[in-house]
Computed example of a mutant assay.
Amino acid sequence: MHSREAPHTPGDPAGIPRLTPREGEVLRLLGAAVQNREIGKRLGIAERTVKAHLGNLMSKIAVTTRIEAAIFAYAHYGALTERATHGDDKPSAPRTRRSNPAHTDVVPPL
Rank of each mutant, 00 (worst) to 15 (best):
M58N: 03
Q35P: 10
S3G: 05
P7Y: 10
I71H: 08
R4A: 13
V50A: 05
V63P: 05
A79H: 04
V107N: 04
A70F: 07
R22W: 01
K51Q: 15
R37C: 00
G55T: 07
F72W: 06
A46G: 15
A33M: 05
G44S: 09
T64G: 15
A32M: 13
E82R: 06
R83F: 03
G11N: 10
D89T: 09
T64M: 14
T20R: 01
A46W: 05
G24E: 01
G44I: 08
V26H: 02
A52G: 13
H86T: 15
N100M: 07
T96R: 15
E25G: 02
K41S: 15
A62V: 10
E38M: 11
G15K: 00
S3F: 06
I61C: 08
T96P: 10
N100F: 01
L110R: 11
P108W: 08
A32I: 07
R28T: 05
T96K: 15
L80M: 05
S92R: 06
R66N: 15
K51V: 10
N100I: 03
H76E: 03
I39V: 14
I16A: 04
V107K: 06
H53F: 07
A69L: 10
V63G: 07
P17G: 03
A52W: 06
G44E: 09
F72I: 06
R37H: 05
D105F: 04
T9L: 11
H86P: 11
P101C: 03
T81M: 03
A69D: 09
K90C: 02
V50Y: 04
H76D: 02
H76Y: 08
T49M: 12
H76G: 05
R18S: 14
R22S: 04
L43E: 00
D88G: 14
R83E: 09
V50C: 04
V107Q: 03
P7C: 11
P94I: 02
P109M: 14
G78Q: 06
M1P: 04
Y77W: 07
T96W: 13
P101Y: 01
D89C: 10
R95T: 12
S99A: 14
R95S: 12
P91G: 05
L80I: 02
E38D: 13
P7F: 10
A33Y: 07
T65A: 14
V34R: 08
A69G: 15
G87A: 01
N36H: 14
I45M: 02
A93G: 02
G87W: 02
N36D: 15
G55W: 02
E25L: 01
